[in-house]
Each structure stands twice: as C-alpha cells, then as structure tokens.
Design a protein around this nucleic acid. Sequence first.
RNA 1: GUCCCCAUCAUCUAGUGGCCCAGGAUACCGGGUUUUCAUCCCGGCGACAGGGGUUCAAAUCCCCUUGGGGACGCCA
Length: 429
Amino acid sequence: MIRVRFAPSPTGYLHVGGARTALFNWLFARHTGGTFVLRIEDTDRERSTDEAIEQIVASMRWLGLDWDEYYRQAERHERHLQAAESLLRAGAVYENEGAWWFRVPDAGATIVHDELVGDVRFDNEQLKDFVIRRSDGSFVYNFVVVVDDVDMGITHVIRGDEHLNNLPKQMRIYQALERPMPLFYHLPMILGPDRGKLSKRHGATSVLEYRSRGVLPDALVNFLVRLGWAHGDEEVFSRDDLVRLFTLEGLNKSAAVFEDAKLLWLNQQHMKRADLDVLVALAEPFVGARGHVSAEMWAQADPERLRVGANLLRDRAKTLGDLAGTLEMLFPVPLEREDEVAVTPMQARVMAALADGIELVDPWTAETVEAAFRDVLAREGATLKDVAQPCRVAVTGRKVGPGLFEILSAVGRSMVVERLRACARGIAA
RNA sequence: GUCCCCAUCAUCUAGUGGCCCAGGAUACCGGGUUUUCAUCCCGGCGACAGGGGUUCAAAUCCCCUUGGGGACGCCA
C-alpha cells in the first residue's frame, strides 16, 4: 500500500513550488489508490503560525488536493522523545551541553539512493555529528522527519531538491532506528524568469494570489504538473486525465522556469472546456468584485441567460476577471464603456428604427433578431456593415465581442432596445 | 570556500545509441475563417552549452571545462 505525504512548515503562505510538490504526491496517491498524508511541520514554535496553517489548508482545498490523514508534528513530541531516548540508550546519540548529538563516523562515506538521480556519495567528514534535540528540549527537523515518516508508514518521499543534502543524515537515523527506508524522489526547483530563486519580485508566488487573479484551480494544476512532468506531446490535462496518467517515471530532473504566458493560455483552454454551470459559479465573485452587480441582481438573473452569455464570452477571456468584465453587460447596470465609436446622424436614425423594429420580436433568438434587423435595414436602405459596430458598442460597450446577433440575443430584448435608443437619442440630441 | 544536483528552441518539454541535419506546446511573426475581436485552421522563426573520448553509429554513454541551482544552523 502506497503512502505519501506533503509536509509544509507553516511559516508563510503556500507558494507554487510547494504546491507542485504537494500535487505530485497527491497525484501519485490518487493514481495508485494510496494514501495522502498532510503533515504540518510546526516544531519551530518561533516561526510557525496558525494563520500560515489556515493559508496552506485553504490553498490546498482550492487546488482540490484533498488529504486522507492530517497531523501536526508538534503534537507528536512524546513519540519523538521516546525514539530519541532509544537512540541515546543504544549509544547512537550522546549528550553535550544540554543538546543531544547524533554520532557520525569521521571516516568513510554515506551513499544514498535517489530514484531520480541515482546513487549519491557524501563523505562522512562532511557530515559531522549533528544535533537532534536542542538544549531547550525540542527536536530538530532531520530527526523528527524520519521518526514521523517511519511511524506513518511513508513508502515514497517526494520532496524538494533542497533536501537531498539532508538525506545522508536521515539515512543514518533510519539505520540507527533499524527501520527500512522509503523510496526518495528529490524534485528540481522552480526558478524565476532570471533563473534565480522564484520570488515575489518575479510576480505572484502565492497559490492564493492566482486564485484572486482569476486562474482556475485545474489550470494551475495543469500548469504546475507540466513543470517537471510530461506525457508525450500532450499539453492540456483535466484533473481526471492526470490522476489516470500520472506516474513517477515521467518526472524530469532539471529545474524549470515559471512563466505566466503559458499559464494564461492553459487557463483559457480550461475555461473553454469547463462545465458552464461551474464556470458561471466561478465567475460570480469576480463579477461581484467589480461593484456594479449586486448579489440580489445576480440571484435574479436567468441562469440560462448567464450560461449562454458565458459560453459566448469565454473564448475571449484568459482569466475569470476578463470574463466577469464582459459578463456584466448581461445585467441592467450602466455599461462600463471600454470603447466609443462615432455615430453619424444616419446611423442614429437607423438604430432608432432598429430599436422599434425589434421591440415586438418573439421569440427572442439570434435568428429572429437577425431577421428583424435585415427587415429594418432593407426599409432604411442601409447595410449591416453600416450599423453593426455602432450597435455592438451601444449594447456591449466594446468594439470587440461575439457575433452581433448572438450577443444581442443573450443580452435580452429590453436592455438591447433601451441601449440602442439611448445611443440614438444621444446623437440626435 | 567545501560538498551536492542539473544542462535540448526565449520558455515548458518529447527524445532512454540508429526512426532525429531533433518532434510538440507557449510566446512572437505572417496567412485563412469571422460584419469586429477572440476562438479555430495553415505556415514561419527558433535548440542538443563547449571540448575531448567510447562506438560502425551519440542529443542519448564516459571525462573535463563552462554555466545555473541547492546545501553547508541547537531553521524546516
């Protein structure tokens, strides 16, 4: 039975590098039917905070990385003490100035095995004796991580590259404890565009920041998994695809640069493929955040119209924020005009006639609206090209958007008539 | 400084000795479709870090150099 864990220290928010580590562990567990453990490594009382734990939990929930077991390392102190005492009795550990030191031979070497990198040799001279229990009685990371992984029956340790140098120390503890070692996979790091450590100066590094930017969780998951994992030439993966296809053999061992461009493209791809009800629900807070459409207005809106509108508008959106900006045109609120177009008196006259001509159209569909338009245009001696852009801008506030009749049908008769008349009046006056 | 890891287009990557004068994706540039924009389709640009080996044959194996990253805590 496969058991893996994600073990963040709650000293800050969950960043994208940690999220990818969590994701690989989660995918491996879900692919194999194994168990995914979330273990909060809060033994450093000084730096650990409850806020950080809440942030990490919220981030993982948003990403859809659910766990089967949850532990807080600080609560396991008794067990750590027990294990340390056994090592003290066995002579593997000695006490000096109140701290407990783990003995490492001066000569020879410790050879560890990583499934991605292979055998790695460390001279013991380099290792030296190290503290496992501080003089204040608390335990050190390298010790508790081993005790916990042993106790929790962890079979595969998938973690960041920066821990490879800790492995020889940990291996010696496994041996002193006389417990078998799990398999280790040290993942390469995620770098910033300058190939340096990914940091805030490169933009967003927090998972939750991507949520507020209007990125879909499935899109971020898709993007992160592709940083260090590939399945042939495929690029767009649903969550189910990943659970089905993910294997550790596909893991890459070189560091990857995190760049937003492809993330935004993937976000668009996921928005295009999303279930419409899901997409509309995801967009709601982004519409609300714009401050024009109240919760009541949203609740009163015809769900079918929102679905149809979202379906028309999503091809042009890279984020939920983009979608929300256009979705607003479906509501009876003043349009936030992004574009203006100069309307001639002739166009204003035709638009007024169009407003009259479509007022009684029933049923109100793209086809019936188009038929009514063509009718009026023929009578007025105008072409569609003459008035298409002014009509689009009058009704949607933008020069660009879906097909004219489709968007008119989605906006609905009363608002279309009203907005056409307002525009025509503005010019005539 | 010492130790460890890594190295294919600008970026993410495919490639596990012959199928590769290297394939896909993003970005960028052109064209088509569209009343507009986007989507979509077609095309273009563009890489095996350098040098030595091994081999009939190397992006793939070995060594060196260079470059990048990481670790050297009574942090995790």
